[in-house]
Write a protein that binds this DNA or RNA. Structure first.
Lengths: 237, 237
DNA sequence: GAGTGGTCTAGACCACAAG
DNA sequence: TTGTGGTCTAGACCACTCG
């Protein structure tokens, strides 16, 4: 596995910033200077710096230079498609995933409509509970078209389905839509989660599209109200 | 006013796609072909195509080419910085904004910290309630550094502060961070909103930064649980 | 005027897809 | 094998900031 030069430079700069080589509001070396240091061309440095900028590590200012931001700590990917495993890594609490259901089903009418599936299409259904600090906080229900994902095991589900799909199967995931609202808790929520008497949950619906613009995955994530937290970092065009 | 070459090409391609010169799933001419047509270099064409891709107009595929996506469906602005006025326009219900407070204050310690303000800085405080279908649903509290916004009137606040700042004052807004959680309702929430006995609200905290990386606006938006809704659209890198 | 980031060029080599 | 998009280079000119 060989990493692109501009990605290698990006990752090197990220780790240097995180290690505190430059503090917030410090100026980065100029693009010409960096090109010399990394023995590369300025355009390649610029690709790395643009990545840093898109991920909130630096702010570029024409005629002045690039300064390091103190928002670099929000290192989760710019909004959308955030997986539980990524979130878990940023938390101190011990986390655990319990797989309650894993199998292939025939989609009913509503699900068919949401996945734009034919009636003969088969669909993976996965129900998982996310435990944080010993409490059952999140109920995740995932639905995939089986033609896109032939194999899915309990082990994969306990780790990160999203990571598996991205790195192992190289599915051409293109974009995602997220919808959030607060809904009445269902019987299922009460069974699987420690709701402490709450009668509502935060519902996050996630639609993942492949790059031919067909819907491939539908996920419903149901969170206990008091533990729900969502952060979004948006850069202006 | 002179437009960059790659921006001009981007806008030309957008209008051609919108006029139907290529339909959904058609292949765009190759980068080399486009470079010839526009009498420019391939790297400049690539900057234009990357913009098209980021804005959801095309999907690039290595070794194959770029296909045009179904434009009509995914044309809403990429997540973040969505104003109430925009949201309101997509709703059927009649909406109204009531300004409860509008003035300049001396920030207390907590607010100073959040705005990174000096103790002598003055701060605009605006408290507004958003009424939808006759019910008071959202409580908005905005804080701006006065040095950035000399004038703010009741009329501006009843329309859209965000639009005013963007179009009239041309502030160099760079990026925004959004945090969402569910909090206990305060006495203020109960006074200003029709909570129907609810003891919690969805709290959206919005931090808006200028492009010198200084925080310029802090907004706290407090929503009734049952009316809260948030949509986010994220394109993969 | 010196230094910065933003744009643009003309070429090169690569990995990938498809006939 | 041919054509595609992805990366990389070494140079150029520009607009901007600041002393």
């Amino acid at each position: 596995m060989h990493e692109n030069k501009y990605l290698a430079i990006y990752h090197d700069l990220v780790s240097r910033i995180r290690r505190g080589e430059w503090k917030a509001y410090d100026k980065l070396p100029s693009e010409n200077e960096l090109a010399v240091r990394y023995r590369t061309s300025r355009e390649t440095i610029r690709k790395a710096l643009n990545l840093l900028s898109e991920h909130g590590y630096i702010q570029k200012m024409k005629g002045k230079g690039s300064i390091v931001l103190d928002v670099g700590k929000y290192d989760f990917p710019v909004s959308g498609l955030v997986s539980f495993k990524e979130l878990a890594q940023t938390m101190k609490q011990p986390v655990r995933t319990i797989v309650h259901e894993l199998g292939v089903i025939k989609p009913d009418a509503e699900l068919r409509q949401q996945l734009r599936a034919a009636s003969k299409d088969e669909v993976w259904k996965v129900v998982r509970v996310r435990e944080i600090g010993g409490e059952r906080i999140i109920l995740d229900k995932d639905f995939f078209l089986k033609k896109h994902v032939p194999l899915l095991t309990k082990e994969i589900c306990e780790d990160s389905i999203y990571e598996y799909l991205e790195t192992k199967r190289h599915l051409p995931i293109s974009f995602a839509k997220k919808e959030m609202s607060v809904d009445e808790a269902t019987e299922e929520d009460r069974r699987y989660l420690d709701l402490n008497g709450d009668d509502r949950v935060v519902v996050v619906k996630n639609y993942v599209y492949l790059n031919d613009a067909t819907l491939f995955q539908y996920t419903e994530s149901r969170h206990r109200l008091d533990k729900f937290r969502f952060v979004d970092f948006a850069r202006r065009k």
